[in-house]
Every structure is written in C-alpha cells, then in structure tokens.
C-alpha cells in the first residue's frame, strides 16, 4: 500500500540545514492500522506531510498504492490526495463558514461528482459518524468530538483507501477521544488503511503496529497482537550525524500544550 525507501527531507535556511527525515524506510500493508509516535521535533509531522503528499522530499522513493510519487506534479498529487487519501487533523480544520454537509461535500466538489452523487455520499458519510441529523449546522454549533467526527466524515466521503490522522484526539477529552478512536477502528475494519500520528502511548497501543520516529528515522517497530503493553520510546543509538544541528525543531512541529 505505502512504501517509503530511504526518504530524506532537508530543510535549509540561511544558517542551518535541518534533517527532518533521514534514510526513512517504511512499508505499510493494505488494511493496516499504524500508529506513529515520537518525541516533539522527531519528524512525525514531516513524515505525515510527505505520506499525505502535502510536501515533497529531498531524496528517496515513495510508492503509494503502486504509484511512484517522487517528483509528481502538483496537479497529480492533488488528485491523488482527493481520491485516495483522507486527512484527519488535531484541530479538526473544518471550514467555519460552511455547514456540516457543505464541509463534507468539499472533496466531492473537487472530484467533480454531480449533485446527486454528492448528496448521496454526504448523507452516507454523515450517517456513518452519526451526525446526519445535524447536516445543516455550522461547525461552531458542535462540540469538539462532534467536530472531529464531521472531519472524519469528510475524510470518508471520498471513500479513500488510506486515512492519515494527525493527533486526531489531541484536542478532545478522554471520553470523546475514545469515541473517535472506536470510529477509526471501525473504519479500519471496513478495509481502510490508517496511519495515525499520536503522542498518546495508550492510544498508540490500540493500533496493530507501532512505529517510533526519532531524529527523523524509524527507530523501533513492534507488532502488537492483542493490546499487549510495550513501552516504546527508547532513544536510538547515537549514529554519526551527517550534518550538525539535527536537533533543531521545526516550527510547524510544535506540540500543542
């Protein structure tokens, strides 16, 4: 499904070069539920952005569903995002001026579906997250958990093969977080591959597979069979750094407090 080989990502500013990802290798099989953890500044978000085709990378190969992503044009990657990938964000990122149905409809618009098909899919996606009745409400009228469910509906509406979640429960209280997590698990069971970035170890443990990113590299991965605990997070052995300043944290990698 997803295959990253020797991916590197270097951010250059006038003063420093920062390696956000270095020789990053990862294979994710169809239908897997993968949790990605790692300390702040480790490169989690960069990984997610690259996986979601939001950012390019400096070196390496990335195949998504058998398609080579390297050097793909903006138009093509937009189309792939639209058709194959669903995004769920920590901050929900609903468009505040649009009501729920219109929010869910956004990807369908860009896909070019006709009105009837859009309506059918919006209805279905919102039913899936249990919010069909509130279709005409604005995001601001909903609780955080409900908003996140709408965001999930939006991600699902396009029937993606592949769901990317960035701290999906980070802004939710524990009860709502559990609801959202259960919803994600249901979706995964229905066949959608999910990659979830989180720093909540407990949440990560519920995924089939756990990956830890440290200093821009996959450090440790373990298969979890049945919720058996394992404390990941040991720091990788000190490898010789190619360039100095690998600890510079990227500004977009701030962890919400």
């Amino acid at each position: 499904m997803l295959s990253m080989k020797n991916i590197s990502k270097v951010f250059k500013t006038d003063l420093v070069e920062t390696h956000a990802l270095r020789d990053f290798n990862l294979e994710v099989a169809e239908g897997e539920f993968v949790a990605v953890t790692g300390p702040s500044g480790s490169g989690k978000t960069t990984f997610l952005n690259i996986a979601g085709l939001l950012e390019g990378f400096t070196q390496g190969d990335y195949f998504l569903d058998g398609v080579n992503i390297s050097n793909m044009s903006d138009n093509k990657s937009a189309a792939i995002r639209n058709e194959k990938i669903g995004f769920i964000f920590q901050g929900f990122n609903l468009i505040p001026d649009l009501n729920l149905a219109e929010n869910v409809e956004v990807p369908l618009r860009y896909r070019g579906f006709n009105a009837k098909e859009r309506k059918r899919r919006v209805q279905k996606a919102l039913e899936q997250v249990g919010l069909a009745a509130r279709m005409k409400h604005l995001p601001s009228q909903l609780s955080g958990g409900q908003q996140q469910r709408v965001a999930i509906a939006r991600a699902l509406a396009g029937e993606p093969r592949f769901l990317l979640a960035d701290e999906p429960t980070g802004n939710l209280d524990s009860m709502m977080a559990r609801q959202v997590m259960e919803l994600l698990e249901d979706i995964n069971k229905a066949g959608t591959t999910i990659i979830m970035v989180t720093h909540d170890a407990e949440l990560a443990r519920r995924a089939q597979r756990n990956i830890q990113i440290v200093d821009g590299q996959v450090c440790d991965f373990t298969m979890y069979q049945s919720g058996e605990g394992h404390q990941g997070g040991e720091r990788a052995s000190e490898k010789p750094h190619l360039v100095t300043e690998s600890h510079v944290s990227l500004n977009q990698d701030k962890v919400a407090s």
Partner: peptide
Amino acid sequence: PEIGVRRAIGASRAQ
C-alpha cells in the same frame, strides 16, 4: 488555513 485544508483535501492549485 482554510485553503490549507482545501489543498489537503485534494484541491489543485488551479482550483
């Protein structure tokens, strides 16, 4: 930010 979301959801630059 809104445009970021739209782009992530699959809107092309042209759109």
